[in-house]
Simulated assay, not measured.
Amino acid sequence: MNNNVSHIYPTRWFWIALLVPVGILLSMTVQPLLALYAGERITLQTVPVDPRDLFYGDYVQLRFAIEEVDGSVVDKALVQKMVKNPEADRYPVYVSLRKNGQTAVVAHVSEKRPRTSLYLKGELMPIWQWENGQRRAKYAIDYQLDRYYVEEDSGLEWEKLARQGKVWADVKVKGGYGVMLELKPAQ
């Protein structure tokens, strides 16, 4: 009796189709993990607003002091680019930070990656204002570090402290990527 039972083994394409999505998902964790384990710890001053998320609970909507910068720290070539192209509303930038006492502050904003290790990637948005008949720009920067979940029923306490300017956030920074570690009362 001839038994023509063939065994079906997974092909190379099966393994590729299986491993590609897994590889993509794993690659999304590399940058946050690098920042968390090998990043430099900095402290940022915050000004939060406290909403409540139905699914996640209390969180503090954060606004950092480094999110608004004066034109004196923005690269001149980038300023010229914005003046020539006023329709664009966001520009990808690298923000060099320096420690100033216990917190970090903006040292320089540029489209070029800095040589220093302490920097964040962000999106620069010009805010045009008129002063004494002249157009002047202030700049806002979005770092995607604006939400931090806190213990249930503690959000209002953090909001109260923030309105008094008494909240700092510890952030780990590596390769332009920041990971929020904790909120703490200002010292």
Rank of each mutant, 00 (worst) to 15 (best):
V179R: 02
Q80F: 14
S27D: 03
L120D: 12
Y148A: 01
P185I: 12
D75S: 10
A140G: 12
L118V: 06
V74S: 13
V74F: 15
N2W: 09
R135F: 10
H7W: 14
W15R: 03
I8G: 06
A162E: 00
Q187M: 09
W15Q: 07
Y9E: 07
E182K: 03
L19I: 03
V5H: 10
E87H: 14
Q31D: 04
R12N: 11
P21D: 04
L97A: 08
E67F: 00
M82Y: 13
V73N: 11
D146N: 15
N100L: 10
P92F: 13
A137G: 11
W158D: 00
G57H: 03
A17E: 05
L118W: 05
V22R: 00
R90L: 13
G176W: 07
K99A: 08
A186W: 05
Y143H: 07
T116N: 10
N100F: 13
D142W: 04
V83S: 07
K121F: 09
A104K: 08
V5A: 13
G178K: 01
G101D: 05
G133A: 10
E68W: 06
V79R: 15
N85C: 12
T116P: 03
E159F: 11
N85I: 14
L25V: 00
E131S: 14
S117V: 04
P126R: 12
L161M: 12
S6W: 09
R115V: 04
K174N: 07
K84I: 12
G133S: 09
A35F: 07
E151K: 11
N132Q: 15
R41E: 15
F64W: 08
R163N: 11
L118G: 10
P86R: 09
G101K: 02
K84A: 15
K166T: 01
R41D: 13
M125T: 15
G23D: 01
L161F: 03
L19M: 09
E182D: 03
V49D: 06
V49E: 06
Q134F: 13
I42R: 03
T43H: 05
F64Y: 14
K112A: 15
D142A: 04
R90C: 09
Q45T: 02
D53L: 08
Q61T: 12
V79W: 14
W128M: 10
T46D: 03
G165W: 01
A38C: 04
L26T: 00
P10D: 08
L26M: 02
T46G: 01
V83W: 10
M180H: 02
Y119N: 08
V30R: 02
L118M: 04
V106L: 07
M125W: 12
K166R: 15
S110H: 08
E111K: 08
F14T: 09
T29I: 02
L181E: 11
D70A: 10
Q187F: 09
V79A: 14
T46H: 03
P185E: 15
